[in-house]
Design a protein around this nucleic acid. Sequence first.
DNA 1: GTCTATAGATTGATAGAC
DNA 2: GTCTATCAATCTATAGAC
Lengths: 213, 213
Amino acid sequence: MDTKQEILNAAEVLFARSGYHASSMRAITENAGVNLALVNYHFGSKEALLEAVIARRLRPLNELRLKRLKEIRNRSGERNMRPDPEEILRAYIEPIFGSREPERGWAYFSNLIARAFTESDEIVQKILLRHMKPVNQIMLDMLSDALPGLSDEEIFWRYQFLIGAFGRAIRLNSSPGYGRLKRNFETDSETLITMLVSFSTGGMKTTGIPAQR
Amino acid sequence: MDTKQEILNAAEVLFARSGYHASSMRAITENAGVNLALVNYHFGSKEALLEAVIARRLRPLNELRLKRLKEIRNRSGERNMRPDPEEILRAYIEPIFGSREPERGWAYFSNLIARAFTESDEIVQKILLRHMKPVNQIMLDMLSDALPGLSDEEIFWRYQFLIGAFGRAIRLNSSPGYGRLKRNFETDSETLITMLVSFSTGGMKTTGIPAQR
DNA sequence: GTCTATAGATTGATAGAC
DNA sequence: GTCTATCAATCTATAGAC
């Protein structure tokens, strides 16, 4: 009972820090303080363990994000207005940075999530993308609604740009390995989210698409 | 003589597609059509091979980027004006998307570069960062010059956001593995660069930093 | 320079005792 | 549920013949 959680915790840390392939089951079980064979007993395989690590946190997280996005959509619908891009972006990204009560594992997990979009490892990419897709789709649709006058192609690419910015922000914020890059800025999550939303909103609202298309 | 290049080409493709750890020397040499032992004969080790793959293309690429950045700085200096953020961003990113004469390997290599900033694999990160640092530093300084009134902390984070957007754009543009995400947009590199620069400029120039700092 | 053969280490997974 | 012991596969790297 406790063993499963210990394995999940240790795997979360190592996957986030060193990646899926570089984290051996021996390293995971050693850090968890349990026997090597117990991973296969409890989860079946290393890949299934990764799936469990992701699902454990991503399920409740995505429920919250979906709830907030739908609230925005309903509210703007009632008033017959377009949704505010900044609100959409905040609802999408804020929950990822962690809950109000900062849990020990969140920093590691948010780092792991940031891989969802950048990681080229096929296994990690496949599993993470499967869990992220519903939220991403709704957010993309809402952005399209919030920013009239942009072609689907432009909406799509601007969405990708901000996903890239989001991912990088999460990584830098949560990964100790990136410490060298962070200089001495001790930016707290609140401020970082605000800057990120501000930057992204500025990019999304840009009208200066040159005419060369 | 030819063997070294064949190994470099094959390694470039596999590293970009599947990552460093997931690409075994057996797979690399098989794709290159050469004997397994020749990697160590010509390069010394797998890590040295990665270094060679990166250095081969990044050296001339960074020379070009530095040249363009310094031109912008000199030009604005002569006229006693601040450099244009959009020009800076374009000089930084455009060369990465490939030369005028599209070489076969560029698509793969640009994908590999995109890992420089997102990859958590320590080996890849270390080597790529070492090659990127000089250009990044100059670009960061120039952005700081071009955008007065922003604190160092804000400049730093906006810079990080656009690095994330850049990386994602490169990955999506060059990686066949991301094909599922790209829908049916056949966006050419010229258009993509324009959209990316436009988005990033909009984000960098944003003034709407709330007062809660 | 290129090859075969193999060393030596590490990997994910499992059989079987307790 | 947890353990030891081990299998079979894979990995990087190297020794030595040609």
